[in-house]
Amino acid sequence: MQTVFERPKSLTDHPFHYCPGCSHGVVHRLVAECIDELGLRENTIGVYAVGCVVLGHRYFNMDCIGAAHGRAPATATGIKRMDPEKTVFTYQGDGDLAAIGMAEIVHASARGENITVVFVNNGIYGMTGGQIAPTTLLGEITTTSPYGRKASVEGYPIKVAELLAQNEGSAYIARTSVSSPAGVIQTKKAIKKAFQVQQKKLGFSLVEVLAACPTNWGRAPVEALKWLDENMAVYYPVGEIKVKEA
């Protein structure tokens, strides 16, 4: 018997604190596998945002820093400019990146900062207890939109990947989903490509990963993945949105 699947070296042995069925675990593993496969572990600095991922330094077996809420792209910019040979990535959720951190991400992309952003979009604030996020779908019930999100009150969900793809500085923008085995493989390819774009110094790269938050959505884990496929993936179409050639 030959082992065909085991824990990547870029992850520590620490068990995840995430809720049952949370997609963060899968995305963590994919990032770690990509770093392993590209041989970048000794040369990578991760920047973790505020949110459920705030304990990311426990899980990633590499240098890392926790940024202020929404400011991960600014922190990453500083690190990358001081040491351009390091691979720098940020790992952010939608409450962090699309709400409080919207200015930082748009400007990092406009400047074409040579960093990689892993953006986990589950359409809700997870850590703080399921409040409405800028990416929450219309009609979704959250603790701060108890009658469902209405366009007339809370506006429309933001499509971050499309928004950032308009910027000249963005070299690689993709959206994927981890709701199925095919989606997981696609996500891994996209994250790997984003790191390669950074290695080639082409500019800003971002992978938006559609993820499930079963606890705050009020859906069972398997049902949540199905809902993700049938609703979120419809509003947020998956695929490569911008690929800049060298």
């Binding site: 018997m1 030959q2 082992t3 065909v4 699947f5 085991e6 824990r7 992850l11 068990p15 995840f16 995430y18 049952p20 069925g21 949370c22 997609s23 963060h24 675990g25 899968v26 593993r29 085995p181 997981v184 493989i185």
Partner: peptide, 17 residues
């Protein structure tokens, strides 16, 4: 290895003959 790929907690190791 689909189970291991989808497992959010990396609780599964897969071996193949």
């Amino acid at each position: 290895k689909i189970c291991a790929m989808m497992c959010p907690d990396m609780a599964i190791i897969v071996e193949r003959a």
